[in-house]
Write a protein that binds this DNA or RNA. Sequence first.
DNA 1: TCCTATATTTTGAGTTGTCAAAATGAAACT
DNA 2: AGTTTCATTTTGACAACTCAAAATATAGGA
Lengths: 222, 222
Amino acid sequence: MLPSSTVENYLKALYQAEATLGEKALVPMGQLATAVRVAPGTATTMIKALAESGLVKYEPYLGVRLSPAGTKLAALVLRRHRLVEQFLVEVMGMSWAEVHEDAEQLEHVVSDRLIERMDAMLGHPSVDPHGDPIPTADGDVESHQYDSLLTCRLRTPVKMIRVADQDASFLRFLEEHNLKPGQSIEVELRDPAADSVQLRTGDDHRITIGTKAASKLLIEVV
Amino acid sequence: MLPSSTVENYLKALYQAEATLGEKALVPMGQLATAVRVAPGTATTMIKALAESGLVKYEPYLGVRLSPAGTKLAALVLRRHRLVEQFLVEVMGMSWAEVHEDAEQLEHVVSDRLIERMDAMLGHPSVDPHGDPIPTADGDVESHQYDSLLTCRLRTPVKMIRVADQDASFLRFLEEHNLKPGQSIEVELRDPAADSVQLRTGDDHRITIGTKAASKLLIEVV
DNA sequence: TCCTATATTTTGAGTTGTCAAAATGAAACT
DNA sequence: AGTTTCATTTTGACAACTCAAAATATAGGA
Ligand SMILES: [Mn+2]
Ligand SMILES: [Mn+2]
Ligand SMILES: [Mn+2]
Ligand SMILES: [Mn+2]
């Protein structure tokens, strides 16, 4: 049985939760329910079924973890999602702020044939428009641990790598200020009292953003 | 409530059945059930629900017909289907023989934004790769009545316009012999006893096909 | 240890879409 | 008119997914 879109969404949510929570941690049911926008009891029911079919390991009252099979399936959904996003931006000229919603649906219906065609047309990209890594067709991902503009050293040239947030208005804001993967940046000042971070971008613009926003902008020292 | 994929498939099937059956005729439940690949009783249940929501007119024991609202909805599904097919062929370089299956799924999830973007990239095409007309965004279609290679005059130059069959292996066969919309053709001979039709194509190839196949190739006198 | 706040599971129910098989209607043929 | 045939509808059931609200478990504080 090939997984329904619903199942794919649960698996993908778990995969992404595990990625931010750390490998060994169990994902709490509440968090999963929130992620897939469903009542807590609904998530419990679904997870028991997924455990039954071997896609997750379920520990009542503690949480869930993907099994190896579930992890692979989730990675393939993520591969489709990200390749579609990259395609919508690079080939169809859509804004990186608006591709997420479309990809959320398309990820469940694009065939292998189609997704591999997109991959080829894009020259086998390793990251999507937001800098998120694209899993291979076998489900392997290269996952780095990046610093953010909140944690990196001050007055040190860094390069933006990835945005860890899909919110459309946030992405539009970033686009307006040229804060996209590849951009060179320096953090000039952090003001904990003001909850703010002052940046200078490679094209010599100054912007001040909140610490929450800064933590979403992942970077690498040049 | 926006229609589910299931509802969209029923509406589209009705639309296409009405097109071949003739405007005023009711579509028999059996034919509809076959088209959407469902048991007869299932179609009855579904149609009663659609009648309830005003998308079809249902005459028990006689058949169904789309309401104006249902007709418009169906035309928009068909618009998405055909624009997607055209996109897959023209932009993604896929074969016209393999795009139907993908379009069958994509037609239910491509957003308005995305479909209009495709339409623009393709230069607002009026037909899809099989020569089927693409409805406008308001649901209007230009529907001609074409002769086929089975009904046209012998030894008279005609131009191929449309293939009235989506079967992949048939389409591959046609592709192999360059029998695509736009191709010039002449029917040299029809042999009712042999159930065959002999053709000469514009690029001077001779092919003999069955009458059933010939009836699927729609043409226009040059 | 007892109590309380919070997360999780259970229960009962509803929706959508489906089938197989029985019942029924319409039509066609003696 | 009576009977057979075929399409259609009805019935009863099930699978997948969901919710609200009640019941229960866990963990942290008193
Ligand atoms: Mn999704
Ligand atoms: Mn992304
Ligand atoms: Mn479809
Ligand atoms: Mn077509």
